[in-house]
């Protein structure tokens, strides 16, 4: 019997390809679930689970991209108001009926330049985190300040722990909010205009408690 040589395989790439495939299958599964007509708790919950699995897959793919190549944003002009509208609609699906997602776009500029898909991933991660701590409400806000578009996710929970606010970036991966914030930071950083680049800001709401996640895009 001849032994078959095992060729060297690039495990990282193969994992990425498989994650990709799973993501495609998830997409199909979600579309399939959407075709189910009956209103049923199990179906609603399955949909929700699919969204969560999908968001995790997206995270993994993004992480892979960050590790293996230079992640270049695809910047185009979008209306922050439209972006928030759509984002709130989709976040509400994740939040279910317990938590209410509200928006505030009164001070949003009419257009801004950013990578819609990447910013959505960063924001969706913030929603996943906020949902774990929010009591009743999560607020999405878009406004312009100091030549930056600021996109904020504010929950009404107990806020970020003090040690995290002291040195956010280094603590990112050691907290249970971990990966999502790490990616949000990376996404903010690759948004550049002229000499400034994007920032991730984390702070606690001064009046009520609650954590404020903010993306500042130049």
């Amino acid at each position: 019997m001849n032994l078959i040589d095992t060729p060297h395989i690039d495990v990282k790439t193969i994992i990425a390809l498989n994650v990709h495939e799973v993501k495609n299958l998830m997409a199909l599964l979600m579309f399939k679930l959407d075709t189910v007509q009956v209103v049923d708790d199990a179906i609603t919950e399955s949909r929700l689970l699919c969204h969560r699995v999908n968001d995790h897959m997206e995270r993994m793919l993004l992480l892979f991209k960050l590790q293996s190549e230079h992640l270049t944003p695809h910047i185009s002009d979008y209306s922050p108001i439209d972006f928030v509208d759509e984002f709130v609609a989709n976040a509400q699906i994740l939040a279910g009926s317990e938590i209410k997602i509200v928006k505030d776009v009164a001070d949003a500029p009419s257009y801004w330049f950013f990578d819609r898909e990447l910013v959505e991933i960063a924001m969706m991660n913030a929603i996943h985190n906020a949902l774990r701590f929010a009591q009743h409400e999560i607020k999405i806000r878009a406004y312009q300040a100091n030549q930056m578009l600021v996109l904020e996710v504010t929950d009404d929970g107990s806020g970020y722990p003090a040690e995290m606010l002291a040195a956010p970036v280094t603590t990112f991966l050691q907290t249970n909010r971990g990966l999502g914030l790490y990616l949000a930071h990376a996404i903010a950083q690759i948004h550049t205009n002229k000499n400034s680049h994007g920032q991730l800001s984390l702070h606690n709401n001064q009046h009520s408690h609650g954590a404020v996640f903010g993306l500042q895009l130049p």
């Binding site: 495609n24 998830m26 997409a27 695809h74 898909e117």
Partner: peptide, 29 residues
């Protein structure tokens, strides 16, 4: 499109679609 790669295509292309959607997307989107 199933992946982010299309954004790269659209940024190179002379003609862009009116918009593009990444799978999966919700009916609301």
């Amino acid at each position: 499109t199933a992946e982010r790669g299309y954004e790269k295509v659209v940024s190179c292309a002379e003609l862009a679609p009116d918009d593009y959607l990444l799978k999966p997307f919700t009916p609301e989107t």
